[in-house]
Design a binder for these strands. Structure first.
Lengths: 144, 144
DNA sequence: TTAAATAAAGACAAATATATCTTTAAATAT
DNA sequence: ATATTTAAAGATATATTTGTCTTTATTTAA
């Protein structure tokens, strides 16, 4: 469904939300190890996610790394998708038609129109904070 | 959600199911025009879809082209995805984890597990024949 | 103030997806 | 038989995605 970049981005966001605070930032090395992604490639992706300084924050230097604040954890995962312009994956027509709509439906529209809102809701329903609070540390699975 | 190839393949399958018979085969030119895809690229994709001679059939020469039989129209659209090895798009973990399961759930599993079966059902529920029979000729939208 | 640790930035490389063009093979109509 | 029409096959080109490596900038600790 998603590109590898996006999968890495979602997993990284969840990992940072769970363990990254301004007092205990997470290095690229730690993050990529935790989510099973190539280090330098992950660096590029995180760079994009910190771009607007809203979702994920970063700081260089000793004890530097990536983290989220209470405020940024109040975003939902759709924010991660939106920054990467990958929200279209769950919002566009399943057959790739630009003009597909209720008035102009593709052959799958009648069925997909009941599923698409569920996909969107999956990423919007909960804040990232609520999402990770539901998961005990011992059960946060983000690798393999 | 799907690659361009797969979107073209799904649209082509539906178009051929609707209009392609052994008496009236459809040329690559007609198909690519109808679904808005590049001609030669579409040829490559159709070549794959005819490979196993089950889903889509083809014949060269004058009045040649692509078509489906009553039997092949009893397949569902998951068959198209399967031939292209793209069924994983709707069957795998939404975060890309190999081992994600009820016992080993990723952070999205609890939510996605209710949506995934609906996506699979969308492509499996109906035969391609039933799918196209539901759509009047004037309402078959496969382009733009 | 300097050295060390870290992310940021940029250049490059490899793999894959998308697309085009040319030649070949097969079927049909004449 | 031959010419024509079509898909099949193969070669090539381009764009995008994925990945690596090197240099630079920033922050912190000593």
């Amino acid at each position: 469904m998603f590109s590898k970049s996006t999968e890495y981005a979602l997993r990284a966001t969840i990992f940072i939300a769970k363990y990254g605070t301004i007092e205990a930032k997470l290095s690229i090395a730690k993050i990529s190890k935790a989510i099973g992604s190539p280090k330098s490639f992950t660096a590029k992706i995180l760079q994009k996610l910190t771009q607007d300084n809203i979702l994920i924050h970063s700081s260089p230097g000793p004890n530097g790394g990536f983290y989220m604040t209470t405020e940024s954890k109040s975003c939902n995962l759709m924010k991660t998708l939106a920054i990467l312009n990958e929200d279209s994956v769950v919002t566009k027509c399943v057959l790739g038609l630009q003009e597909c709509s209720e008035l102009n439906p593709c052959p799958m529209h009648e069925r997909y129109k009941h599923i698409k809102p569920l996909l969107i809701e999956m990423f919007e329903e909960k804040t990232i904070d609520d999402l990770v609070k539901d998961i005990p540390d011992s059960k946060l699975i983000l690798i393999i």
